[in-house]
Nucleic acid binder design. Structure first.
Lengths: 238, 238
DNA sequence: TCAAAAGTGTTATCATTACACCCATGG
DNA sequence: CCATGGGTGTAATGATAACACTTTTGA
């Protein structure tokens, strides 16, 4: 069957940049190996064509699961890439999505067609197909910007976590050596979005307090913040 | 002539949300009146179909000029809207762009096909076609967020401007009553991105100092900021 | 008693807020 | 000399950064 239109149309695809944090606090990204030309054998972001009756987000989630087995992810739209020459096969416009997940909770599946799927450290990436390096670069920047004003990342930790774990997470996502322990703690506790829920047991050192993220407190805070911001006016801070 | 594809393809359009500031410090948005169904007679964002050999941004600028006569605008991508039912004619995915311009420097043209083009105050909008109210809402939010961390808006003022004018601008864009004069000034001057260039003449009150935006100083500042941010780590501020 | 990691005290400095007040000009 | 905006002083309070120190646990 074929589909005919009066005017030519670009093809429309979606691509997913899925960041994962592994046990050793490395930031990784999920890639698949292409089987077909163009770029056969190269690694690429999971993605594919949008069906006519699904939303863009649904398309991204569907392709992600089909190609990697990864599901139940909160993705957000990143940017739409539409340079005329970005795909050698012809005009293809791609809407990119991104997410940050707990790597250990999202095992990759050997996809049905035996395509390879792997997590790569963002520091040691293979050459990528199409303009996927550009997409990934933008996703990394966005993730780092976002981590500063939204409590992204709490989903990556166990339900209960220590402040050291949380600090580790921030250091990893921001790609920074070592944040000042004292100041990190003061800051994050002052926000009042963490609830103390117990302490570690059976560790060979002083047991750390365990916290969980208090979502309601956060949402409350967020609402208050908004009014503040308007009163302050200008900021010029990221 | 017709174009045939093996699989169906959504149509791809671009839409432009152009904000303008008028002389009386009102925030307005540029709309056109549709001639044809669906939504004939309704007001809508300027926009249209993407050609096969132009980038998305180029398509947005082309449609903007064709439909409104407005040109030489710095647009930025906002979001891509792709809900399956957003256009009654069928599947249409639209990449939205936005910009903020000095309204008086961008006169609208009676478009060749005599379609009406007008600036509407964002507070008093007519019903809009498609999901354009949603697009506009998102654009407004983005503009307000952006104005806090980027010196957007300086382009809207004359080359030389007073601090009161600048404050007015911020109040308008943020939709806020009155920022504290003292604090606004302290803050913005402390940044060091304004250069004093003279003073007003022939005004019936103490003449104000005139400033211009020091682009180099800003870019310098921006680079320094970035390192700082990494060291501070977590922020949770917008 | 030691290693390892958790957790705290403190201080100098800077930023923010809120108010009230003074200044220069043309009419 | 007054109306009209432009422009400044200041003090209380809170946030930030930097560094060194104490505590608690299992081995």
């Amino acid at each position: 069957m074929a589909y005919t239109y009066e005017y030519p149309r670009p093809a429309l695809t979606v691509d997913c940049v899925i960041f994962g944090l592994d046990e050793s606090h490395q930031l990784k990204v999920l890639l698949i190996q292409r089987k077909n030309d163009p770029f056969a054998g190269r690694w690429a972001l999971p993605g594919g064509f949008v069906d006519m009756d699904e939303s863009l987000e649904a398309a991204a989630l569907r392709e992600l699961e089909e190609e990697t087995g990864v599901r139940d992810v909160f993705i957000e739209q990143l940017f739409t890439f539409g340079a005329p020459e970005r795909d050698p096969r012809g005009r293809v416009v791609s809407v990119a999505y991104y997410a940050l997940v707990n790597l250990s909770e999202h095992p990759v599946e050997a996809a049905s067609d035996a395509r390879r799927v792997e997590w790569f450290p963002v520091q040691e990436l293979p050459p990528l197909a199409f303009d996927h390096d550009k997409i990934l670069q933008m996703a990394t920047n966005r993730l780092r910007a976002k981590v500063r004003y939204q409590p992204i990342g709490f989903e990556l930790l166990p339900e209960q976590f220590t402040l050291s774990q949380l600090q580790q997470l921030y250091e990893t996502v921001l790609g920074v050596d070592e944040l000042n322990k004292r100041n990190f703690r003061t800051r994050i506790l002052k926000m009042g979005v963490l609830r103390e829920v117990g302490k570690q047991e059976n560790v060979a050192h002083r047991p750390a307090k365990l916290y969980s993220f208090d979502k309601e407190a956060y949402e409350q805070l967020f609402r208050e913040r908004y009014d503040d911001l308007l009163r302050r006016g200008v900021d010029f801070e990221i």
